[in-house]
Amino acid sequence: MGLVVEARGLHKHFGALHVLKGVDLLLAERELVFVIGPSGSGKSTLLRCLNRLEEPSSGSVVVDGVDLLHPRTNINHARQRIGMVFQSFNLYPHMTALGNVTLALRKVAGKSRAEADEAGRAALARVGLADRAGHKPGELSGGQQQRVAIARAIALEPRVMLFDEPTSALDPELVGSVLGVMRDLRESGMAMVVVSHEMGFARNAADRVLFMDHGVVVEEGPPRAIFEAPTHERTRAFIGQIQKH
């Protein structure tokens, strides 16, 4: 089975801070990898290195066979294949839901307005928001906004989706709708890397869980192993902490 994401030996320095200390992340097709860890452990930075929103200090990132760090790689081209969803949605407030979804389809994928609208409506339908196409982000709930953000990413037909704490900014009753969309996406075979604190979702949906702390992957394995029989003391402590709540 081919690898969709192949990141090896990633280091990232922010000035004197050494945030990633040689992290590997390999993601197979149709695989869902969950990244957990305390805040400041480097999990978001790892995710952001996978589409070069963050420039790794060293290491290699190959996505869908394209070396992202090669000087001749057209990063804007490559990013179409890598969808990303952010904690704070980051929808464009001056555009409708459909406008948010179709902007890159028109400007990057080069579709005509009619083609882009059709693909955009299909993407909104996949996240259950076909009837909200004409609404501005300010008129949508947080959960709906995040689903529009997911539609914006999947409309470009990416090979992999990166989720950076997609439900952390949501009211508890809105989390379910977003997780539902993520579950559908997983069932359709989308390769996904998810940074999140939704441990229930991790247990049910993840193929593999990575536990990060202080810029390294401390432990990784199937969710059952990580949650029920962690081998490292730090993993045990973290799992214990979050399960108290």
Partner: peptide, 11 residues
């Protein structure tokens, strides 16, 4: 975040 969202879609 506006820049990042747009750049992440390839703009």
């Amino acid at each position: 975040g506006q820049w990042e969202a747009a750049r992440s879609t390839g703009l």
